[in-house]
Design a protein around this nucleic acid. Sequence first.
DNA 1: GGCACTGTAGTCAAATTTGCCTATTACGCT
DNA 2: AGCGTAATAGGCAAATTTGACTACAGTGCC
Lengths: 196, 196
Amino acid sequence: MMILGLVRWMQPVHGYDVRRELLSWSADKWANVQPGSIYHALRKLTDEGLLRTVSVEQVGARPARTTYEVTAKGEDEFETLLRAQWWQVQEPPDPFVAAFSFLPAMPREEAAAALRNRANLLRAGVESMRASLDSDWVRTRKPVHVGWMFELWLARAEAETAWCERIAERIESGVSYLPDGMERAEGWSGWTDGSR
Amino acid sequence: MMILGLVRWMQPVHGYDVRRELLSWSADKWANVQPGSIYHALRKLTDEGLLRTVSVEQVGARPARTTYEVTAKGEDEFETLLRAQWWQVQEPPDPFVAAFSFLPAMPREEAAAALRNRANLLRAGVESMRASLDSDWVRTRKPVHVGWMFELWLARAEAETAWCERIAERIESGVSYLPDGMERAEGWSGWTDGSR
DNA sequence: GGCACTGTAGTCAAATTTGCCTATTACGCT
DNA sequence: AGCGTAATAGGCAAATTTGACTACAGTGCC
């Protein structure tokens, strides 16, 4: 629901503008907003009185272009929503963590290889991000806090890279997946497949 | 769609079992699976031929309890899905990053305070995680890779903590949010609110 | 025995999201 | 001129997710 925020600092806008801006931030990745959701969101926000339609233009026989701007109520709501995100820590769902929880279903070799591969991909990402951080395009055309966001990704990615290597080694070392105490005890029947 | 994985290593199960297991992993946080989704997922997977219903018991006048197990096709599909997650890097949507991108809408003081607060919350999380890592419950009752997942969170959280402090300082230092080159140039009209 | 609670098992409507589709104009190329 | 491609706007049906709700059975307590 941070479409609201975008409308707020592009006032007045129509859906397509918002869509382009989101795409240019490649926000379909780190926010859950695909193009299709935008128009629905705009209409819903309007119904709730957070947005107001400014005008409906029609150029030729193309679809009508509805322009929106934020109401006072919308400003309020945005501030509330924004603060909620700033003051709370709320780890997002991570598909990799989910997959990792099924570690015992992967053959050891493959698991280790995949982790090494992941480390490499992360490193590559870090590289390309560093490059664009240094590039003129970001340095001179984008607000500096965009660079700061890159730094956050960088920090996380580096931490994760190290973790991947560490875990890969442990897996290769052949340690048992079972809890420390019980070596081949009861109840862990489902846990054997890839581990052979 | 990793309900499949759960069913696979609890075979045979009924919906409620899956639900409890997910809750015990507090998986409603890092996977996007609320209790309500489970039954739908089970039925859908059955329709697709990835699961097979084993039996439908009825105890007294309670709701019927349907038990599922995985078909060969389901095994295959699971392996595919699992590998996709293991071999790809795909950063998940993060609401905080989204909120941070609106930094210029926050008063500097508040932004810095919020970041410091975030750092503290993260540190607290790290502490409590370290504690449960050392606890007997995790060490002796859970597979070791659960501990490894904790370590990943820990690494990420520590990286992020440092970042928060770093950025908080920069914000307090009063640097301009505008791109390096253009101090008060054109086009950045929407970017002033909280910054006064 | 009566009563309040908790645990069991699952349903359902409503809200959201997704992916893909339509139709028109503008642009570049040969 | 003619043609293919890209950009402009937005709609819509289907899939997914959510959150709240139902209804029954056992348990403990007074």
